[in-house]
């Protein structure tokens, strides 16, 4: 028997699902009213430009999370892969045409190693990727000799190239996320990702190649980390020693804020993930424009994550586990 929902229940469900968007819109309006510069075209493009590295960096992690797993090594993977790439270019004189694909391949390789240990050797993903986080960072520090390595001027110019008022990396980043979205929503692989997140045993019983899908998500996570790192390096013009430090938490925060459940089986690249990335960027940007006290930033960031986690928990607890049908 199907129960008709009361208007109050419908409103509550709507708020649970889209309440965060309403809050975000209110925040945007608030920043726009409080400052003259926040809603300017230049600021919006600047905000999108600075959001591109994180958006790509963590897109693979979003898929890993949707399978109900976790990868906290993405910051170190990006650091290691990009350290190798930049060293090839700067110290060995290798052409970017070779060094850039090598960077991406190293990122994917790191993801593959994480995936094998997690999926095939059945080591807890948190433990695996925590170990990997230390290993890749240690290797990167060893390779760089603990030195900041600047990239050639031409690559920095490429990372900040504009077509009219729009940075080209915004367009590349958007295209990348659209491809990820299509892969997630329109291919059997994407459906299998969600199946894994919902219930691994059931997915296995219905013929999903659970291990292959899980492994592929880790490879994608490493690959995205490598590419996102490249965008960051090209924008700022250097591989710094702090590269990717704490990034895993920022990425997880963006994922949770966007409404992708840490329990897996829920969420999407558009709009969830992108919304989460933009929310963090907007908050940081808006506080900059407001000239907020530097001590306010972590407070606001933490508050938003808390609200998002609470919303996620409400969604989970409020959702009927079994659909009642007539």
């Amino acid at each position: 028997m199907k129960h008709a929902e009361s208007p109050a229940a419908k409103a509550a469900a709507f708020l649970r699902e889209y309440g965060f968007i309403a809050i975000l819109l209110a925040v945007i309006v608030g920043f726009s009213v409080s400052t003259n510069s926040f809603m300017s075209m230049a600021n919006i493009t600047g905000l999108l430009h600075s959001s591109v590295p994180l958006a790509i960096w963590a897109a693979g992690l979003a898929l890993v999370v949707m399978t109900g797993s976790l990868d906290i090594s993405i910051g170190s993977v990006a650091f290691f892969a990009n350290a190798v790439g930049v060293i090839l270019m700067v110290r060995q004189g290798v052409s970017p045409a070779i060094a850039v694909p090598a960077t991406i391949a190293i990122g994917a390789l790191c993801g593959l190693i994480n995936g094998i240990v997690t999926v095939y050797l059945k080591v807890n993903p948190l433990i695996t990727t925590m170990g990997a986080m230390f290993i890749y960072r240690g290797l990167a520090l060893q390779l760089t000799g603990s030195r900041v390595i600047s990239v050639p001027q031409g690559l920095r110019a490429f990372g900040n190239f504009r077509l009219g008022p729009v940075y080209t990396d915004i367009l590349i980043g958007l295209a990348f996320l659209v491809v990820m979205h299509v892969v997630h929503k329109k291919t059997p692989f994407g459906r299998h990702v969600m199946a894994l997140g919902n219930n691994k045993e059931t997915a296995d019983r219905v013929g999903v190649r659970v291990k292959a899908v899980g492994l592929s998500c880790f490879v994608l996570s490493g690959l995205c980390a490598g590419i996102g790192g490249l965008f960051s390096v090209f924008q700022i013009g250097a591989v710094t020693l702090q590269m990717g430090t704490g990034l895993e938490f920022t990425a997880i925060a963006a994922i949770v804020i966007g409404g992708i459940s840490l329990m897996g089986g829920e969420g999407s690249i558009f709009p969830n993930y992108v919304l989460g990335i933009l929310t963090l960027g907007i908050i940081e940007n808006g506080l900059n424009h407001l000239g907020a006290s530097p001590y306010v930033y972590p407070f606001v960031r933490g508050g938003i994550i808390l609200v998002a986690m609470y919303a996620d928990s409400l969604k989970r607890n409020g959702k009927p586990r079994v659909l009642l049908t007539e």
């Binding site: 400052t35 510069s37 926040f38 300017s40 230049a42 600021n43 600047g46 600075s50 590295p53 960051s232 924008q235 700022i236 250097a238 710094t240 702090q242 590269m243 430090t245 704490g246 940081e284 940007n285 900059n288 424009h289 000239g291 006290s293 530097p294 930033y297």
Partner: peptide, 21 residues
């Protein structure tokens, strides 16, 4: 005043935002 947390990316975005504002 822009906090950077010693993060290179925030040195860039912080400067850009401050110049916009």
């Amino acid at each position: 005043q822009v906090p950077t947390e010693w993060d290179a990316q925030k040195f860039m975005t912080g400067t850009a935002n401050a110049l916009q504002a």
